[in-house]
């Protein structure tokens, strides 16, 4: 009887679910992710805005903190999105829903949320007087460069959370896994904690490493001054060596010539990082790696959810 009857295909199902997700945006309280992104960024910028893209240390810490915000935002966007409605997905799968359409709909919906969050984060950074790089590398402006990077990090983290949400059976389990993912991403970013040996290879599998690298590259990291050595020397100015204060003499000499900035720049030059070299190809390389991880997470989410029929009562 039904042999010749065609039902909605993957593409049309994707539009059905995309529409449903956007409709439910207001009632499901998903809108809260936008003010939350603004508040978190404002708190972080209060601390990092002065030195971000101004000094090497400030840029490293700032990029790390901003990347953390993006990963946090992305993960909390979708960590519960699938697992909280898993029985509904199972019912609909039984009625002919394609899992790929369902996940693609989530991808589109989350993409828009992430765009909004990245725009808010960028705007709050701007209002907090973060000095954005003047030389763009990918887009026509430095701000849009940073925006694009923030978006890609947020979206990739979002897809990682979507994968976890597709794998686990309930929101409690999903929320238990989040801290482990966050710690992995933050510790293995390779920025704040030195990692050597074979463990360093793990860095390549984090979003944070590529996000921070892209931001530092865009922030012209290698041309910035390094202030820590100068500050340390200043702290040592009263140290006596054989009843003399040679460090104080050096400091006086440098200040007399007005060469503190040159000293700091020289220190920065000695701290050159090849991966942060401010060239377009470096940024594009980071983008490709982040996008590949994003796609991998999405594909794995589809595969994971295809087994939903195996769920027991």
């Amino acid at each position: 009887m039904n042999n010749e009857v065609k039902h909605s295909g993957r593409l049309s199902q994707m539009f059905i679910y995309t529409g449903k997700l956007f409709r439910m945006f207001v009632f499901q309280n998903d809108w809260k992710v936008f003010p939350m992104a603004a508040v978190i960024t404002a708190i972080v910028c209060f601390v990092i805005s002065k030195d971000m893209f101004v000094t090497m240390e400030g840029t490293t810490k700032g990029c790390f903190a901003i990347t953390c915000i993006c990963i946090w935002n992305g993960m909390f966007n979708s960590i519960q999105s699938v697992c909280r409605e898993r029985p509904i997905v199972k019912r609909e799968h039984r009625s002919g829903m394609h899992i790929s359409s369902y996940i693609c709909a989530h991808m589109i919906y989350q993409l828009v949320l992430c765009l909004g969050q990245a725009a808010i984060t960028t705007a709050v950074m701007k209002f907090s007087d973060v000095r954005f790089p003047k030389t763009p590398l990918v887009t026509p402006s430095g701000i849009t460069d940073i925006f694009l990077t923030l978006f890609l990090i947020t979206f990739a983290a979002d897809m990682l959370a979507l994968l976890i949400s597709s794998l686990v059976r309930n929101p409690t389990t999903a929320m238990t896994i989040v801290p482990f993912l966050l710690i992995f991403q933050l510790v293995f970013s390779g920025t704040m904690f030195a990692i050597g040996g074979n463990a360093a290879k793990l860095k390549d599998f984090t979003l944070s490493k590529w996000g921070i690298t892209a931001l530092c590259t865009q922030g012209n990291y290698n041309t910035l001054p390094m202030t820590t050595p100068w500050k340390t020397i200043k702290k040592l100015e009263n140290v006596k060596i054989e009843d003399k204060t040679p460090i104080k003499d050096i400091i006086k000499n440098v200040e007399k010539k007005g060469s503190e900035k040159a000293f700091q720049l020289r220190c920065g030059k000695e701290n050159y990082h090849e991966e942060y070299e401010s060239v377009r190809s470096n940024v594009i390389d980071c983008y490709i790696r982040i996008i590949l991880q994003t796609l991998l997470f999405a594909v794995l989410a589809i595969i994971a959810l295809e087994f939903i029929d195996k769920d027991k009562r």
Partner: peptide
């Protein structure tokens, strides 16, 4: 309506 779009024939 979404259930109808999923379950009713495309035609």
């Amino acid at each position: 309506y979404d259930a109808a779009k999923l379950r009713l024939p495309k035609s």
